[in-house]
Nucleic acid binder design. Sequence first.
DNA 1: GATGGGTATAAGGGATGGTTATATGGTAAG
DNA 2: CTTACCATATAACCATCCCTTATACCCATC
Lengths: 294, 294
Amino acid sequence: MVSKLDLYRIFSVVGRNESFSGAAKELFMTQPAISQSIMQLERELDTRLFNRTPKGVTLTNEGSLLLEYVNSAINLIGIGEEKIAEFKNLTTGELRIGVGDTISKYFLLPQLEAFRARYPNIKLKIENGTTDELIAFLKSGEVDIVVCNLPVADPTLNVMPTMDIHDTFVYGDKYRKLLARPVGFQELAKLPLIFLEPSSNSRKYVEEHFLAKGVRISPEFELGSHDLVVEFARMNMGIACVTREFTKDYLESGALHEVQLTEQIPHRSIGVCSLKSVPLSPASTRFWELLVGE
Amino acid sequence: MVSKLDLYRIFSVVGRNESFSGAAKELFMTQPAISQSIMQLERELDTRLFNRTPKGVTLTNEGSLLLEYVNSAINLIGIGEEKIAEFKNLTTGELRIGVGDTISKYFLLPQLEAFRARYPNIKLKIENGTTDELIAFLKSGEVDIVVCNLPVADPTLNVMPTMDIHDTFVYGDKYRKLLARPVGFQELAKLPLIFLEPSSNSRKYVEEHFLAKGVRISPEFELGSHDLVVEFARMNMGIACVTREFTKDYLESGALHEVQLTEQIPHRSIGVCSLKSVPLSPASTRFWELLVGE
DNA sequence: GATGGGTATAAGGGATGGTTATATGGTAAG
DNA sequence: CTTACCATATAACCATCCCTTATACCCATC
């Protein structure tokens, strides 16, 4: 195998020009440089590639055979480089994000629509799961970016908060009189409560906060999705623990009402995370910028 | 376009090994050299090709896409080099020779058979013509080697004599008595003579030799091929000027008889010629060696 | 916490590829 | 026939660049 592939780039140009000095001009080199390069290639292949004539050079049979292969090879590399450029343009590529269910519907969906409108050729791949599962996806390389509830305390991740969310309790008309005045945690815990499943990040957060205040909750209902929780509240099945931002429509329309707490639950944030150790792909970078408002 | 194709050879090996240090071993280089080469390639493409991990590197999407193209390109060049090697092996190639008609039948044919038996994959291309025409073919590049009657006085050619031939006169039974004793040129010229056409090298040679001795010939018959000349002699149409070596069978079988001349015609040689300025192809070189007995 | 395997970085030195200068050879024009 | 011009070949020199050595750093494992 010839050691220096660069000789083939020169060979290709000389073959096209059928002239050493012509190739030299095209390559911004001098004629002796070309002459030596071709001689080196011929020496390494132990084959004469060009017949020298007074008015330039002509390919030998061997040379013109080889030229076919070399030109194809160089073209291939050129095509490869073009494909790479497409990645940079975001005219091709893939965006793989991990996101919690609730977030995906209320927060991420509009962003994804915007991204897709702007870069229609980027393939989208969305993984769902709990925060812990998503971080695992990130570390195993299955996704490039995770959007989840903070806090995420992991020194190997870049974490950027993008939106504050507030855990709150809501109820339907049936509980209106009962909850006309502010209530404390203790009081609230005695009412019929509607929560997400214990494994969910939101549930854990609120539950732990109550516990820190010495209040243990035992919900009447434990449901699989935020939507269900909201619907149960509307059907007056109890007092529901929801994210205020994701219940905005119901609250504004008066279909649901917010419990006045005597003590605030500290807000959480939605954050976007990526691995510190792995640079983001072009598509991921762009999406990250979109999320954090650049 | 990336300037240094050599970077792609390194990239390919790194891609296969998924390790800088592994590739370094394979390429008999040091790890920093690989690291710098890849960094240079990434800089020129402005694209990250590998994700660095504690236990080696992994290809990015862009990198693995590019690798496909690069590997194909390198394979192509490898195949091209193999084809070139086939030329050197004489398992492919072409042998183009120019040769006079007479020579081709009696002298060259056995050599060509031997060559073809030894190198069955070499394509043969034979051009016929007069010596002058053949030399012109040689200079215009239509043939690589010419086998013709000497002398050929051309400083731009390599000429190597390979076989002596003798011009002689033969006759059939009818002239037996008449030519039982040696005859001189003058005497011979008065008999009915059978010659090749005036344009043929052999005819010119003998004719000029006679002329130098003050004898002008005027043949009864001027024929297009040596074979015809021989046949006319056998049919007792006259005394034929032939090449002794190409009439051996007839002379030995007694079908024809050789004129005893009082004065010898100096022998000529068959020679093989090639251009000094153009190196011979592998096939031509081998055939040349065969002809001159190496 | 130490060890080992991986990559990154810095700096120096030597090989190599390109340059300039010149030779050579052939062709075309005077 | 000779000159001039166009090609490539050759030689010598020099600067660049690539590879090496040395070292740092990170992470995992023992």
